[in-house]
Simulated assay, not measured.
Amino acid sequence: MNKKIKNAVNYLKNKKIKIILLLALSVGFYSCGDDAEDNPTSDFPTEDKISIEQHVEQPGTLCDILEAAGIETYNVHKIKLSGFINGNDVSVIYSMPLEDADLSDVQIVGDGLSTSDNILPSNLFNTQIKQVALPKTIIEIGKEAFEKCNNLTSIVIPNSVTSINDFAFYGCSGLTSIDIQSDNCDVGGYAFKDCSSLISIKGSIGRGIIGSSAFEGCSSLSAINISETVHQISGNAFKNCTSLTSITIPQKVSSLGIWDLDNKLAKNPFSGCTALKEIHIKGSNPPKTASFDTYINITLYVPTGSKEAYKSHSIWGKFHSIIEE
């Protein structure tokens, strides 16, 4: 219950006035996302599950539309929207205990406060969400958009997306598959950290940078395809990906790790990858890199004619097995 309603209730108690009507009204206020951060979905019964399909022509009017239809948001478990939504509508959506949301025909409109044009905002869904169709027009997935949505099992990233921001899917422990339809999509820091059930990623990841700890703790991930446009793989990017057996580092990658205060690379992206057996590097010039955990059990594959350059490198030269291909 929001603070204004609590204060009103206490005032009326002191006046010895019955508060039944006020409590009923408070449910109405909640039903359209007022003070959504209080997570009303845990406070109201949800036995009567409702599925709705609605077009929103004017951004910010979803609450009015639902109220006119007599729909309480705390009963809406499945929704299909089309049209235009802004921050007010986002608050309404967040107040729903949604398990299934189809927003593929929605366009997100900036309101100058909580939403920007075509950017999926933070905290759009509650953690009950299991299935989502993202808007076809979004260019970014906002910070913490699906953080700890543990019931989410798969996600398709539209080809319009150029950035998956920090913590976007952090801690989504039930996520098993990702379909990245864009070949031009940066992955922010901690974006998929601790997605421990993630088995497969369809498509290639990265546009220029793969952020720090982006896939750290994805212990079920056995393979990953890094985009040819990536030039930096940041520190701990794949740390503790204990099922990862092979990795290919694209030609444009110039650094592996994160620069410390002494202007040295630290936090190797593959720290703790205990199953890693092969590293394939496509660049003839050895990229700058932080130290690896081991150099004995991993075979380093390098371009034909570049073996001597790698053998003479202060870090790459420590690998016991270097093979040209």
Rank of each mutant, 00 (worst) to 15 (best):
S122G: 11
N240L: 08
S222Y: 05
F125L: 03
A168G: 04
F125C: 04
T73S: 15
I224G: 07
I71E: 05
V92H: 00
K78R: 12
K318N: 11
F270S: 02
I20P: 00
I201L: 03
A69Q: 15
A191Q: 05
T274K: 08
I108T: 04
Y301P: 03
I296N: 14
C241T: 06
H280T: 10
D194I: 09
C63V: 00
I129A: 01
G203M: 10
I226P: 06
G87N: 06
N123K: 12
S243Q: 12
P250M: 03
E140L: 13
T137K: 10
T242D: 10
Y190N: 14
I323E: 02
D100W: 09
K264N: 15
S91F: 09
K136V: 12
K49Q: 12
V156R: 02
S42M: 10
D183A: 08
C218G: 07
K18G: 13
D100K: 10
I19G: 03
S95F: 04
T46K: 09
L66A: 01
C241G: 12
S212W: 06
G257P: 05
K311A: 13
T115L: 02
W316E: 01
V9A: 10
Q128K: 13
K267P: 09
G257R: 01
S219A: 08
E324L: 07
A191R: 01
I141W: 02
N39I: 08
D43K: 15
N118L: 12
A69D: 15
I210V: 11
T229K: 07
S182G: 12
T153N: 11
D102T: 11
G28F: 14
N225A: 13
S51T: 13
I157V: 08
G70E: 08
H320A: 12
P45A: 09
S116A: 12
G87M: 05
T294I: 09
N165Q: 13
L276V: 09
P287R: 00
S246D: 11
I315K: 04
K136N: 15
F29Q: 10
A290C: 06
L300K: 02
K18Q: 13
N159A: 11
F319C: 01
H77M: 13
T137L: 07
P303Q: 12
V156P: 00
K193S: 15
L265P: 01
F270R: 00
T127W: 03
E228I: 06
A168N: 03
S182A: 12
L221I: 05
M1A: 11
H313I: 05
E144C: 08
E67I: 07
S82P: 07
S163P: 00
G28L: 15
S222F: 04
G70L: 06
E228S: 15
Q128P: 14
N150H: 05
E278Q: 10
G28C: 10
C218H: 05
C273V: 07
V76W: 00
F292Q: 02
L66W: 02
K311D: 07
D34M: 15
N297R: 14
T41F: 06
I19H: 05
L25P: 07
T137C: 05
V302H: 01
N297H: 14
Y74M: 06
H55V: 11
E324W: 00
I258N: 10
F319T: 01
S220L: 03
K13T: 08
S314C: 06
L300I: 06
G208T: 14
N268G: 13
K307A: 15
D102K: 04
E67V: 03
E47M: 13
V132E: 01
